[in-house]
Design a protein around this nucleic acid. Sequence first.
RNA 1: GGCCCCUUCGUUCAGUGGUUUAGGACUCCGGCCUUUCACGCCGGCAACACGGGUUCGAAUCCCGUAGGGGUCACCA
Length: 532
Amino acid sequence: MTARTRFAPSPTGYLHIGGVRTALFNWLFAKQNGGQFILRIDDTDQKRNVETALKPILDGFRWLGMDWDEGPEVGGPYGPYYQSERSKRYEEGVATLLEKGLAYYDYAHPEELQAERQAAEKEKRPFLYSRRFMADTDEKKEAFEAEGRKAVVRLKMPREGNCSFVDLVRGEVSFEWAQEQDHVIQRNDGTCLYHLATVIDDHDFKITHVIRAVEHLSNTPRQIFIAQGLGYDIPEYAHLPYVAEPNGKNKLSKRKIPHYLKNREFKKVYDHGVTIANRLGFAEDAETFNPVLVDFYEKTGYLPSAILNYLALLGWSLDGETEDFSVDDLIKHFTLERVTKAPAGFDPQKLWAFQDRFMQRLSTADKVFAMLPFLINSGLLSKEDAELETEKERLGQIIEACGDRLKVMGDLLEYADFFYVSNANLVYNEKDFKKRLLKENADLLLEKLISRIDSIESFDTKSIENSLRTFLEEEGLKMGEIVHPLRIGTTGKGVGPGIFDSLSILGKEVCLARLQQTLERIRSAMGVRKQP
RNA sequence: GGCCCCUUCGUUCAGUGGUUUAGGACUCCGGCCUUUCACGCCGGCAACACGGGUUCGAAUCCCGUAGGGGUCACCA
């Protein structure tokens, strides 16, 4: 089977995580069947700045590695791929439908229609337009126009029988035609509406499988009606459950971020992202920077493969056990038949777990490559220095020392910044400083440590550890008693990578200088304390 | 309100008439490891919405109830 699928984003300026999931299923399905994935831009409603509003969306897809075979920027044989440029095709469609008597000019004012609707509601019967203002002859047209009325074009929907079709995830679905309204397909200004446009586009682009969110399920009969009217083959349909909000049943929505922020897990992931954003020097508000948008993950340094793996499992599974999928695995195993029917809640914590897993597998070299931009953008490393092999090597050491503590690329900034700041700019965590260093004889201990460290000749991790362990024996101390003072004294932090690694990477000179500086800090703090 | 859809641990995904004392993962709770924080390891809590059928036997099939959602635009 050769499959052609599509995803049709509106240029809204952001890429929604739920949208990505829909796009992903389309993409996987196309890839699996050796077909094409097409991006079509639904910009019939947009006034201007389509390119600006589209860029973040395309960037998002590119970042995720979801390439499109046809669409904006890459073109393709069936373009244009922007709906705003396809109005001619839509007008042709309207003409055909009109000719076949499957659509009609309607001269009703919106208020008149509204009145009918309300009357029906009052009588508790389903609304069906009376077609009072339908003009199926030229005479009627002229008469209505003489009244100063303007026409829209409506579908002349069947009023009996059923529309049945097979949905690849839901099975056989059936609707009564009489439930369908005579939808407008062309406005009185001549522009055409979505349902017509989407059917014509799908046909023109030779889409074989329409895989979209379930909110379109009840739109399907009218689209089938249009397609049949136009003599098109009906594509296969697959309606995906929507992605629900964390701990909720409602559809995940960008507009409800303040509400989601009340959710502990969601908040945690959000706060973590904000911390990184601050380090990077961009202070965006929750409106444009939050875990519902793909951009959030790109900026904070998640791995696309982790996100894709998580998203694929939001409403799909191979079996009850397998969770671990590479992108290639997904392409190989994905099936619409195993897509769930019920909506799945977005769980940022579970995503986090995938991220953790993928991060652990990433090689040091790959991490170096990915983290370098973060160092540069945060100002911790200059662009020129970032080019240096020695710096890359050092970053590799730092990353290895940090080990599994780095969950996303941006974590480096919070976790290992002390490797990059000057001694004078070292920031001390006051709470830890007080807890670990402002106590009896802390200064004396530090003095001893300084002289011991000064005596270490080869400043590698192993030598440092050996030397300090000897020190412990000589002094009758436990590891915990020197690790904390040393860590805060050299890194300013209460938590961090292994201390021997940290010291070694920092280098003897820097360690001594920082410890000396810390010693003075302790004495001045203690002095101040004693004064009153 | 009409129509359509959905309903298994807190979350997510299995389970399609007996292999099920309903399984995996995340979370959570214990414990171990340990130089902090992570990681890792071991263990634990925890669900078939409800009510009727059908059947020797139902989470699995049927009907109903309840709850949730989608859709009913000159939006997409």
